[in-house]
Amino acid sequence: MIELVNVRKIFNAGNPSEFSALNSVSLNIGENKITVLTGPSGSGKTTLLSIIGCMSRPSAGRVKLSGREITSLPERFLTDIRRKTFGFIFQQPNLIKGISVLENVMLPAYPLGEKRSHLKEKAMKGLDALNISGKAMAKVEWLSGGEAQRAAIVRALINDPSIIIADEPTAHLDTKLSYRFMEIVEKFKTEGKTVIITSHDPLVYQSAVVDRVIGLRDGKIEGKPS
């Protein structure tokens, strides 16, 4: 489904602070699989994830999504692919303060110009599925950590993406909530979605639902000669 060939990412190229965050990463991620990227902090997990999720472009190498080369697409096309294909769950809930949970959840669909009544219905359904429809009108400041994360998950699902990307999703959750999160991930899989998670939390990468674990160190995939 997602294919990376010799992907490199260099920050501040040409500067004294030039830094190579990814060095020739080649990778194949299967459809309807749960893949976990692990590795120490600074090993390039987030960078790799943002390239997979069409958020940034590699300095060199190719990325293919369902066979289509997307490496040098203009931003507006990448964004279009991104918002229809990927749902993002971040380390922080990254909700926008001052507006309601419902509005936060609907936010990714705004540029698509969907009919308001449809969109609202979809959002309410999503909130209902994760048992937080009671908080729909609440401001995000009033949510607990677990609720905020569930709201963020509903937001990631609003455009019905086929791939879910989660960056260190359990970093700020306690054990109980982390298990709860893995249950949700399992549900994604049964719905036919592909899931990619970065984590150095054993609770995540040792979980039984995970299909594949990829280790990353210093911008290279471990156990593979580059």
């Binding site: 501040n12 190229a13 040409g14 472009r57 590699p58 300095s59 060199a60 190498g61 490496t71 040098s72 203009p74 931003e75």
Partner: peptide, 14 residues
């Protein structure tokens, strides 16, 4: 240079 993923190209696209 569309093929390049250089910083310069990213800046130009912006």
């Amino acid at each position: 240079n569309l093929q390049s993923g250089d910083e310069l190209q990213l800046v130009l696209e912006r």
